[in-house]
Design a protein around this nucleic acid. Sequence first.
DNA 1: ATGGTACCCTGAGAGC
DNA 2: TGCTCTCAGGGTACCA
Length: 294
Amino acid sequence: MPELPEVETVRRGLAPVMENATIQELVLNRPNLRFPFPENFANIVQGQKILSLGRRAKYLLVDLEQDHVIIMHLGMSGSFRTVDGSTPGKFHHAHTKIEAHDHVVFHLKLSDGGTAQVIYNDPRRFGFMLMTSRNRLDQHKMIRDLGAEPVGNALDADYLAAGFAGKNAPLKAALLDQRIIAGLGNIYVCEALWRSGLSPKRKARTLVLKSGQPTARAVLLVENVRQVIQEAIAAGGSSLRDHSQTDGSLGYFQHSFAVYDQQGNPCPKPHCDGTISRIVQSGRSTFYCPRCQS
DNA sequence: ATGGTACCCTGAGAGC
DNA sequence: TGCTCTCAGGGTACCA
């Protein structure tokens, strides 16, 4: 389900359950997702306390007390749900109902004495779980090349100009490149470009002056990337195809889509009489208004 | 190095 | 009903 706002929403849903809980048992219902699970995965994490649940780009980071970090990615169809176990003082046997594509179950002992299960479900299995040590996290293959967080101090127009300089790739592809800005995906790239009035087909280098300075368009694009991500996080992300958050509730940013999945609809920009169209770039759908995006 | 394509996998929905 | 086709919020391997 996940671009950055959806992953951040998952993190916020899971954190109150997972943080300070102890992993009593880790159940793996198959040997791999996209990649094989780490060697001795269950043995290593069982008995460890979770210090915090973090996020970098679209990755969830489970910080364990013995310096291990579990690196989790949801791919296209990964989701988590939590199931309450016994509450303190009660002897209630939690009957966890395992459903199709439930690949990983964290059995947790909570800080308040209760129990809970956190279940990872992923029909397409493009997601993965890897592990490293805390002091090597920044050097990890999946983390080391990630660019700036869209909502963070490192991202500004100068940074974007440096990343886009000389790039012949279209803006759509450049914004999806996780080495420049990390965490954007197909939805929010389309939305940010529409908000900026920029064509997804425009070459990335056209937002950079010969001097290397950002153009006014670059300044605008950075601002819109920041805003659309902030708004989406505030809305609890986008819920497509009935995907729900960890507590079963739905994010609602999908109701704010101006262009994503809106082909054939009128452009919502005031005084624009264009029609949203769908094209394919890098093998993926791009939605934009050919009238007001150039 | 850079940019484009094929591919990993399952399920939902459209059209016949 | 059931078949076939396309498409899906991601990233990587491989090609020119």
